[in-house]
Design a binder for these strands. Structure first.
Lengths: 206, 206
DNA sequence: TGACATGGGATAGTAACGCTCTCCAAACTA
DNA sequence: TAGTTTGGAGAGCGTTACTATCCCATGTCA
């Protein structure tokens, strides 16, 4: 398959493919001659993955490059890779609150109270803090009780996530990382649809 | 409060505040003289809201401007506003799949099968299609059963959402729109923490 | 064998976004 | 009154994700 054919197969312009090659988002094809390279299905797959992570996952290309590196580096220890993946996925946190610095560390306290087994150094605790503070800034601050109600249901989601992780390590890493990113938008869309359903159901009963 | 003081109060630079004023993201202060304007708490709040929607919600400023317009336009019918809000929140869909156009419309079929009451024209059905297709492109495609398991839990989340909507229309609109945007990151962070908890719990039992 | 289109690599240019810097004259301040 | 500060307008900048141009070796057909 030549570059133009890869372009047709993936729906991405030749110019963009060249760009992805330069940026290391796409592995080079087999060099046939100095002006020709051969691409195969792995390239088509890769391009689709990159577009999915970019368009739906909303990740910047630089982050996608790191993600790809992690999931294509074989061997390595499970935990090591997952940790690297987590660090990779996190947007650099700007540490600034929204005018007031109150409420930092609420997430840790809440998680402890709830009895969740999570590393107290986990960066997603800071993410939760940030997101919680943002809700406050938006004037829709919520209390621990409401967070607990959310958490009840999210636990169920996480169980599905863990349930469906393949046993083979290579596939597992791929699933965990890509699944985490790409399933988020699915859940977001489901949430909006479910809101409509619930609200229509309630309305229908009155 | 002068602009410099608003800057101190909100943690946003004067230059950026000027920019927000130009872009209509921040309502003008009361003009005291040609070189002085008076800002108050509503301005501080507004700036924090803009930063929250931008930094945590990840919305582009142009979208934030539209959101603000919707939630600050009083009167209007409930449904009308919510509809406008939904349209506002959606990123312009590029309609392109990820190389293959297969699988379009799966979302509608699935929703019908599940018996959810949603408008068949709802753009979030397309969002769900896109996100589902992206998961396929990522090589972690899932079947309807897994989607059903997710949906069971998401319904619970939506119930919490609807439960906590205030009765007063003005506040309700604000809550629905801002809540939808800003709670997503909270749920995403919770999901990652819950994944860890579940996975640690399982590991602990073996 | 030669004319000529095509492919791939390198470089430069572009559009959108989100600020940030500079300048200005009016106005407050010592 | 001298000096600093303010708000407003405009241009400029850095990043991101492409896109367009140029070049020439190669493949292709006569």
């Amino acid at each position: 398959m030549r570059l133009a054919e890869l372009s047709d197969a993936s729906g991405v312009s030749v110019a963009t493919l060249k760009y992805y090659l330069r940026e290391g988002l796409l592995h080079p094809g087999a060099v046939v001659s100095r002006t020709q390279a051969d691409y195969d299905d792995t390239h088509v797959e890769r391009v689709r993955l990159v577009r999915a992570l970019s368009e739906v996952g909303g990740l910047p290309l630089a982050t996608i490059a790191r993600v790809l590196e992690v999931i294509t580096t074989p061997g390595k220890e499970w935990l090591e890779v997952l940790e690297a993946a987590q660090r990779t996925l996190l947007k650099p946190v700007s540490d600034k609150g929204f005018g007031g610095a109150e409420g930092r560390g609420r997430a840790r306290a809440w998680v402890a109270k709830r009895g969740w087994f999570v590393d107290p150094e986990d960066p997603f605790l800071d993410e939760l803090d940030r997101a919680w503070a943002a809700s406050d800034a938006g004037g829709i601050g919520f209390d621990e009780e409401r967070l607990n109600r959310y958490a009840d249901h999210v636990e169920g989601i996480a169980e599905v996530d863990i349930d469906t992780v393949p046993t083979e390590p290579e596939a597992a890493i791929r699933q965990v990382i890509i699944g985490t990113i790409l399933v988020d938008p699915v859940l977001a869309a489901l949430r909006r649809l479910a809101q409509q359903h619930v609200s229509n159901s309630v309305a229908g009963h009155h």
